[in-house]
Design a protein around this nucleic acid. Structure first.
Lengths: 337, 337
DNA sequence: TTGAAAGCGATACCAT
DNA sequence: ATGGTATCGCTTTCAA
């Protein structure tokens, strides 16, 4: 039942050679006679020896493991993206130690420190905020390569993968304006992280360029669940007609779900009673009727790009920032006022 | 830039004490004078010392890390569930090393071996199949506690968390039969894993008890993507009327999406032209109209139950199997023939 | 080509 | 209560 662990010493003994020789054979060192090789390999096979990766890490100083921190594995976009990230890293021989964010900067900071203590070879970070000086400092203390996933700590010598949310939302907003909308609501999550800020930027740029005064006012941030999106939407739709939005742009999937629920509550139909653009084009959106207009990003591309970037850093290259496109696609719910 | 790592030796030297004393203070050993304590703590603080967890693992033999293997992080149910699993384990002081399945038994077997070499303190496994002797053998060689996530390797001394798919699907099927359906199709994923098999069982039990001969025949397995579900559905709906299903039960989210796409292609509306029951009640289903009948399981419950079970095993308790309920909820798409 | 031994950074036993 | 030292399992330098 409790078989003893077989170590490199056992192999050496069984083969009648020194441990250093065993190590050489196992790591394909050039100087190893065919005879030595076969003896060691026979012993390895016979004993079913498997190297202890913890000991190996302590000695060599690298773990071949990348730490990953993100807020929320249940976020559909990140879930999809992660599959590709993980697969790319795995086929390059790296593993992922995944941590879910605690929800605040102090907690995330602690997690990153822990990953450091575990000697991670690299870090993928999607922290809960990118505006915290504490987190900024903790990240700067990471001894190994860092790739930020759509987070924008400034003046940090790390790599970044961005999605160009601003351009996509800007196109969407411009299209809605061209369709005659003057009361457009952007409902989004936390402005503590880059994506929501970028969407705001793209949105406001279009509003300002068109020189309309947007009846709804500024982007609405801090909506973190379907239920709060639902409540907020009902509130908006009950405004006096002059301030009531004729179009809504939803920044995240959770918001989209809540908005759709609210519209259903109110007996309003998107595309008909108001226009709607959703950010993130997930599979289930394809089965909704009417077809909802979207601003989409490619999660496969995001995942593999982040992995490639990490691998280049591990290979000694310099950190850089890569921005991936987003695309506005008008469907049934982009309609004239 | 490349600051040297500060070790326990550095702390000992700075404090003018022995390394063993530093270790004692850090692990709250009873015999440590207040004076010693304060000297060490001062040195730790001054140097910013943080223990090396790799070295610690090698010495103590435990990593406080649980290995996790699953097919597909993008599977929405597992994504949601994982959040709760991860949070529970983290608050108990454990981390998760997450691996995505390679797609075949050999690959999964290799991954589990690797996790073993990394000295994981435990294993959460949702392998790509639970019918492989190779995998069975590899799992039995795990030295630390194993919790199977809805996988059913028999005669293995490990813990299991099951969802009672059979009962939920059985209720759904019975309801459809009561509504007059005699041609019911169950479309599902791989029968290599327990969930699809259980759904088949629950389905067939209802069919046989009702003594109807189901026009569609046996459950349809092996549907792994929306596109193949879409193709299969079109094929079914083009059958001669006597064999054409009047109701469909979809075993997974991917299948549900594909079926809905196909129905849209064919100009058929669920609830009206045929009945439909979907397994797994995800948030976005709530915004579809008509409301789709579902067989649901509680992902939060699944995640925390799995975590609690693992923690009990780590605490020395015996492995057991826990089965969690599923629930059939009739909505707008369970209609009379 | 091969073996002996030092060392990675901790913990814990054994003296004192 | 404290210090010295063996040990965890491996890699790598240094001699032979």
């Amino acid at each position: 039942m409790d078989k003893p662990r077989v170590t490199i010493h056992d192999v050496a003994e069984a083969a009648g050679v020194a441990v250093s020789s065993v190590s050489r054979v196992l790591s394909n060192h050039p100087s190893a006679s065919p005879n030595m090789k076969s003896r060691v390999e026979a012993a390895v096979k016979q004993l079913g020896y498997q190297p202890d990766l913890v000991a190996q890490s302590l000695r060599t100083g690298n773990t071949r493991t990348i730490g990953l921190l993100m807020k929320d594995l249940s976020n559909p976009f990140y879930g999809e993206m992660l599959t590709f990230l993980a697969n790319s890293m795995m086929s390059a021989g790296y593993n992922l130690l995944m941590m879910t964010s605690s929800g605040d900067a102090e907690g995330d900071s602690k997690i990153i420190e822990m990953l450091n203590q575990r000697r991670m070879d690299g870090f993928f970070l999607a922290t809960v905020t990118d505006q915290s000086p504490l987190l900024r400092k903790t990240i700067s203390s990471c001894r190994n390569p860092v790739v930020l996933l759509d987070r924008d700590f400034t003046n940090l010598d790390v790599a970044r993968v961005f999605a160009d949310h601003a351009t996509g939302v800007n196109s969407a907003t411009k299209d809605l304006i061209a369709l005659g909308h003057k009361n457009i609501a952007l409902m989004d999550g936390s402005a503590q992280i880059r994506p929501a800020r970028e969407r705001s930027n793209g949105f406001l740029r279009a509003i300002n360029e068109a020189k309309i005064k947007n009846g709804v006012g500024s982007p609405i941030n801090g909506i973190l669940s379907p239920s709060s999106a639902r409540a907020k939407t009902r509130e908006l739709m009950n405004l006096p007609k002059s301030k009531r939005p004729t179009a809504i742009i939803t920044g995240s999937t959770y918001v989209t779900i809540g908005v759709l629920e609210a519209l259903s509550d109110l007996g309003l139909s998107p595309g008909n009673d108001l226009s709607l653009v959703a950010c993130d084009d997930l599979p289930w959106l394809r089965v909704l009727r009417p077809r909802i207009s979207t601003v989409s990003r490619d999660y496969q591309n995001f995942g593999t790009t982040a992995a490639d970037l990490m691998l280049s850093l591990l290979g000694g290259e310099k950190p850089k920032t890569i921005t991936l496109p987003t695309r506005y696609e008008a469907r049934d719910t982009s309609q004239p006022v």
